[in-house]
Design a protein around this nucleic acid. Structure first.
Lengths: 338, 338
DNA sequence: TTGTAGGCGTTATCAA
DNA sequence: TTGATAACGCCTACAA
């Protein structure tokens, strides 16, 4: 039998209104009554019914995260770590976390957002893997649904976000590779509408320029952010008449596949060829050789996003102009021969 | 402005009851009216309000998964893959997936379950990492909350579950190691109250017996299912006067740490020492050398669990006696020298 | 076949 | 400081 405020009220000979107020910490209630109510509630194991509360308050105390379409899914370690952060932080703000996956279909993604918004499943959203022109951003903004995101889109819409210095990160990586003596460098990226693709590719080009190297379009290939995508891209690159000596990858997952490919081709990684990733997922430390990568605190970013969204939902002011996060270059054996 | 059945009713000059029935597919409504309602609903972008529906129906159409306490979190790839399965399958049954993490505290874990049950956040639960005597199993059974689980506990409570042939799996692994010429084998496990610990350890002992090897308690050490736990355990083992030639690990994550430790000690893995894991997470293919492991279809198992829970929630009969799943031994370079 | 009305558990408004 | 009471949006007897 579920306990409701009505039963507490009966038990104590109070009105349900009084009980409700005592429980919710309103000031217009005598301290004695409040204490009695609180004690009874604890004793009876009362927990407010969510549905009723939601219906009445017109909010859900839940936030949503929908795994973006066109990703390999949580198998990409990045998303797993992102989710730790979300799952960790949400309860601290008394927020539930609702999770779903869009699969490979952008249509399904849109359906999901629309349904969640219209049926008021959640009060706000967390986004990542932002696209240059991102339907999600426009849709949520138009419908005035609170949301925060990792990275910003180019839709001309302002929203609270966390930004990573992708360009600066990759520039420092290219410099490092150059110092190690690697010259011909390839970039294995992803879909062109992804913000990180554009930014990190820009960093790659700038890095080349800084080091006085020429940009060769042939050395920029499109993967799909997965290990198998990286594997194939890397093989294609090695078949070139003049193959690259270093492979800069859009993310660690891609780099895992590249490591595999290089190994299958019998190359010694770190000497014959360099491989580097981006994200610094835990598994990057376990490859052989360990993967050089641009480390960003993925879980922590997710935590901060939840915190930002929580503030947004409570209409608390957000500190503006959060500075961009600088990735940390973790130099490991995959790019240095000693 | 949110669309409710009331607005559809006004639009069509119908009662809200008629609209509700038309939408829910009741038979006592004229086909014409139904069509009009359906059309209007689609046109107006109507989506039922969850909270209202829940309150009325006394169910949530949501299922819950709480990351068990005492785990490294989603950073253990096993959980990430498990979650893909859940997130993938839940929407197919029109179920929402609510996710939280218990952190390291069993108390918090109990709080979470109690709160979710009492506030009726979800209709049922998915459990994994079952303990021999598992509070969650007893609590949910006592409160008649539907749940399904990966592995069963020893609480004498029947519940729908999926079981893995842990013993048979490890036996075949030990045999493989023996064939490869490895003799002194260690077992790096986890907390003793875990079902998988007991079962896989039993497989290890039986495997030793099958091969005519003696069991040495010194070679059984306790990790914590994390890479760093594996790292430390492996170093401890190598410091023994007569160190083991093979390390059987409770899960892949532990094995990752062991690989690291062996490498740091300058040993050639696959020849000087063998290392094997359990679960077959994606990352196990990316280590160098690649990790021999007992592969189970983690995501698929999670999908099946959702399906079972969905059936349970609809009071549909479950096929009894689902046979135990046999892990697939993936022999890779970490246990074979050629 | 359709409409009326009560209630799911809470919160919020208004009186008392 | 407290108590009635009316919603919130939906479902479902029961009546029409």
């Amino acid at each position: 039998m579920k306990i409701t405020i009505r039963q507490i009220a009966e038990q104590l000979n109070l009105s349900i209104a009084a009980v409700s107020r005592a429980l919710d910490g309103y000031p217009d209630i005598s301290p004695l009554t409040r204490q009695r109510v609180l004690d009874a509630a604890r004793e009876m194991g009362y927990v407010p019914n969510r549905a009723a509360r939601q219906l009445r308050r017109q909010k859900t105390d839940a936030i949503g995260y929908i795994l973006p379409s066109g990703t390999p899914g949580f198998s990409e370690a990045f998303f797993a770590e992102f989710l730790i952060g979300l799952g960790d932080q949400a309860p601290r703000h008394n927020l539930d976390l609702l999770v779903s996956t869009a699969g490979s279909s952008p249509v399904r993604e849109q359906d999901l957002y629309r349904t969640w918004v219209r049926s008021q499943k959640v009060d706000g959203f967390i986004l990542n893997r932002i696209r240059l022109n991102d339907w999600r951003v426009r849709y949520l903004a138009e419908n005035q649904i609170p949301f925060v995101a990792l990275e910003r889109s180019l839709d001309g819409i302002e929203y609270p976000h966390i930004e990573v210095d992708n360009i600066g990160g990759v520039v420092s990586l290219v410099n490092h590779l150059h110092e190690q003596g690697f010259r011909r460098m390839a970039f294995i990226g992803g879909p062109e509408d992804l913000k990180i693709q554009v930014a990190r590719l820009a960093g790659y080009r700038q890095g080349l320029a800084d080091c006085g190297m020429v940009f060769d379009p042939e050395l920029v290939v499109e993967g799909d952010l997965s290990a198998s995508g990286g594997y194939q891209a890397a093989r294609r690159l090695r078949w070139l008449p003049n193959p690259p000596e270093a492979m800069v990858c859009l993310n660690d997952e891609t780099a895992f596949g590249v490591l595999h490919a290089m190994h299958d081709l019998g190359l010694e990684i770190g000497r014959d060829v360099a491989v580097a990733g981006f994200d610094g997922v835990a598994a990057s430390a376990h490859t052989r050789p360990a993967l050089t990568t641009l480390d960003i605190p993925v879980a922590e970013i997710a935590q901060n996003l939840v915190q930002m969204l929580a503030q947004l939902l409570e209409n608390k002011p957000l500190e503006e102009n959060r500075p961009a996060l600088h990735p940390r270059l973790l130099v490991r054996a995959s790019t240095s021969s000693h």
